[in-house]
Simulated scan of single mutants.
Amino acid sequence: MKKLLYACIITASIQLGFAGMAKAQLTSLPDGDNKRASVSEQIGLADVTIRYSRPAVKKRDGHIWGELVPPGYVDQGFGPSKSAPWRAGANESTTIDFSSDVKIEGQPLAAGKYGFFVAYGADECTLFFSKNTSSWGSFFYKADEDVLRVKVKPVPADKSVERLKYEFADEAPASATVQLQWEKLVIPFKIEVDAMKNQVAMFRDELRSEKGFNWESWNQAALYCAQNKTNLEEALMWADTATSRIFGGDQSFQAWTTKVAVLQALGRNSEADEVMKKALPLGSETDLYRYARSLSAEKKAKEAFAVYKMNYDKHPDTFFTNAGLGRGYSGIGDYKKAITYIEKAQAQAPSKPAKDNMGKQIKTLQDGKDIN
């Protein structure tokens, strides 16, 4: 009796196993030889990914647009949708994924994944970005799932494209145009991002991670904001963190000068001047030389001379301090003394181009002109 029971159990298990196996399907080529594809590109800091299937023209030239791809909306004879746009590809719905907020043809669209559909027209196409990302084709399209609709003009292609494809074109730092290309037609739409907003958001997020455990990261974020005159109040907090003792930035000339830049961007110049006094003693020979050069470029000759002199007193008779003091004297109009120091720098020049440059500066000073 026990043997019979065991045999029944084993037979049932085998039958259940085969039943389960029968539901599984082996991997095969996509239906209709419509190749699956994806294309991605970063626009600003936003990752944009399009996933789609690629139907072929297959000698149907002249019968794609307006025929195989019907104009407007159609009843496809299957599914609940009686007025559906085209799936913008083949097989499964085409999807497009944005890692951050974007604008499509000037219209805002939140970060996320969307089903992408097209209502074709010879003179104008309507593009749909839908919450429906998992359906097969557009058989289950619902208008109330649309998040955004935009209208664009299709344009003739320079050459025939056998298999439908998506490409990024007209790339710029904060924008690109996506082109749906098939047969002899292109349907383009422009994607734009707020690169500055995304960059600040990325900094804000990364500073909470392990990347925020050094003064350099806080300094990088604060300096970006100062240079771009954006998010300045928060940038000042970032600069305060960079110059704190926690991560060692309190001894960094770069960290303190970044704080100066943020304060200046905020219009708090007297505070910036006081902070700069703290920063100067921390500067290296090249730090002080570059800072003085920036003051010269801003036509702040007296301030530049003071820094060049400080640098020379700390590091007397080197190439940089001689070249710097020569620039300092030139800025305040004492060309004779300027020549003296530039000649010293010429003798110490580390390379022939540097030596030749000193020679040009001496000639300029001899002509009675400022070298800054």
Rank of each mutant, 00 (worst) to 15 (best):
Y6C: 13
Y6T: 07
A7F: 15
T11Y: 09
A12I: 10
I14F: 15
Q15W: 15
L16F: 11
L16Q: 15
L16S: 08
G17N: 13
F18S: 02
K23H: 03
N34K: 01
K35G: 07
K35I: 08
R36P: 08
R36Q: 09
S38H: 13
L45Y: 09
A46H: 00
D47V: 08
T49V: 10
I50G: 06
R51N: 14
R51W: 05
R51H: 13
S53T: 07
S53H: 08
R54N: 01
D61I: 03
E67Q: 15
L68F: 11
G72H: 01
D75E: 10
D75W: 08
Q76P: 03
G79H: 10
G79C: 07
A84L: 03
W86Y: 07
R87T: 03
A88K: 01
G89H: 02
A90I: 07
A90G: 08
E92M: 08
S93Y: 00
S93G: 11
T94A: 03
D97R: 09
F98Q: 02
P108F: 14
Y114A: 09
G115Q: 08
A119G: 03
Y120C: 00
A122Q: 09
D123V: 00
C125K: 06
F128C: 05
F129H: 05
F129R: 05
N132I: 03
N132Y: 05
S134I: 09
F139V: 04
V161P: 05
V161R: 09
L164N: 03
Y166H: 14
D170G: 06
A172K: 15
P173I: 10
T177N: 06
L180P: 04
Q181A: 14
I187T: 05
P188E: 11
P188T: 11
V193P: 01
V193H: 01
D194C: 11
M196T: 11
N198L: 12
F203I: 08
D205S: 06
D205R: 10
L207G: 00
L207I: 02
R208I: 02
E210T: 07
K211T: 01
F213G: 01
N214M: 11
S217P: 00
Q220E: 14
Q227G: 11
T230D: 06
E234Q: 15
L236M: 15
L236Y: 10
M237L: 12
D240F: 00
R245K: 15
I246P: 00
F247I: 06
F247E: 14
G248L: 13
G249P: 06
S252E: 04
A255T: 04
T258P: 03
T258I: 08
K259H: 04
L263T: 03
P281Y: 09
S284Q: 14
D287F: 05
Y291C: 12
A304S: 13
A306P: 00
A306G: 05
K309N: 07
R327K: 10
G328R: 09
S330F: 01
G331Q: 02
I332A: 07
G333N: 13
D334N: 14
D334A: 06
K337Q: 12
A338I: 02
T340V: 11
Y341H: 15
Y341L: 14
E343A: 12
K344W: 03
A347E: 14
K352R: 12
K352F: 10
N357Y: 11
N357Q: 14
G359Y: 14
G359D: 14
K363N: 11
D367P: 08
D370F: 01
